[in-house]
């Protein structure tokens, strides 16, 4: 549905988006994840044709955005980071204007009413946008993007500044829309994306650093499973006991806690549960496990690791 190839944007000597390629299938919800200033909005602005790319192409439904801008733009509904609202208009008049601007060919009144019902703004349709709260404004922006039922929706941080209740509502809305639309949506909050998206694209310093299914992100970055343990006993005995357990790959002593107790990190193969064997082996070696925890990285850890890894690599490159 959306195909991005070698997309690059440079401002002078600064490269904001660096050779990004990815594609999004029909009905897929793609999460665009990255810290602030990673190039998310710039990429989205290039896909929607707001700014041009320095290099590379964006194809939507078979049409190239720079060659066939009208065609591409009419098949994309875009909610920018700051919703483009004319604050001196009423909600209904604004949506009427956007309907005409987008040259939508659906029954006007019914369609606008339907969209307003969908994002739950029917009750404020007669109010001037200036007087609406942030949450309502965001939803009016959302409604604007939905006008004309575009097959592709691009949402730039749609939940920023909303209260938890509204965030859940917007999330559910995105999920339900994902059945009929292709959605690209960005956020710098991981939980946001992991709750809604099928696929995550992590972007840092203008580059894609990961492109995985949401369920696989953690394991693909973190690698092996880990156990974190506090064990009482001599270090040699503990290491010898653990080494021979099938499935254990790596044992690392992290720190001495005192009173003959040390903390160890044990890495083991995915799919093998080594906890029982570890317990027995340590007991047989006459040592005591005082504490055993899952040492796996959370999604948030993996994300941070990815992003910082990329930054240090980049710094190295500059030198």
């Amino acid at each position: 549905m959306v195909e991005v190839k070698n997309l690059t944007k440079r401002y002078g000597n600064t490269t904001v988006v660096d050779d990004i390629s990815f594609s999004v299938g029909e009905g897929e919800i793609l999460g665009f994840l990255g810290p602030n200033g990673a190039g998310k909005s710039t990429t989205m602005n290039m896909i929607t044709g707001y700014i041009s790319s320095t290099k590379g192409t964006v194809t939507v439904d078979g049409y190239e955005v720079l060659e066939n801008p009208a065609k591409v733009k009419s098949s994309i509904g875009y909610l920018p980071e700051i919703p483009p609202l004319y604050i001196d208009m009423t909600v209904e008049k604004y949506l009427n204007f956007m309907f005409d601007l987008k040259k939508v060919k659906l029954p006007k009144k019914e369609h606008i009413n339907e969209v307003m019902r969908l994002v739950k703004i029917s009750d404020v349709s007669g109010r001037i946008i200036k007087n609406l709260s942030k949450g309502y404004r965001q939803r009016v922006g959302f409604a604007q993007a939905l006008l004309g039922n575009p097959p592709v929706l691009i949402l730039d941080e749609p939940t920023v500044g909303l209260d938890p209740q509204q965030i859940i509502e917007i999330r559910n809305l995105i999920k339900s829309l994902g059945k009929k639309h292709t959605i690209i949506f960005s956020s710098h909050v991981l939980s946001e994306i992991s709750a809604t998206c099928d696929r995550i694209l992590v972007i840092s310093n203008g580059k894609i650093v990961a492109d995985t299914k949401t369920s696989e992100l953690s394991s693909s970055i973190a690698g092996n499973q880990k156990l974190k343990m506090d064990i009482e006993g001599s270090q040699g005995a503990v290491l010898n006991a653990l080494k021979v357990i099938p499935g254990v790959l790596k044992i690392k002593k992290k720190q001495d806690i005192g009173n003959n107790v040390s903390r160890y990190i044990v890495e083991y193969q995915n799919g093998i549960d080594v906890r029982r064997d570890v317990f027995r082996a340590i007991a047989a070696a006459d040592c005591v496990i005082l504490d055993m925890q899952n040492g796996n990285e959370t999604l948030e850890d993996s994300f941070l690791k990815l992003v910082t890894q990329d930054q240090t690599q980049n710094k190295g490159g500059v030198r």
Partner: peptide, 14 residues
């Protein structure tokens, strides 16, 4: 200033 140019420039209008 209001960033509404984004709506205009990403619409199918030339």
């Amino acid at each position: 200033r209001q960033r509404t140019d984004q709506a205009l420039l990403t619409s199918p209008s030339s």
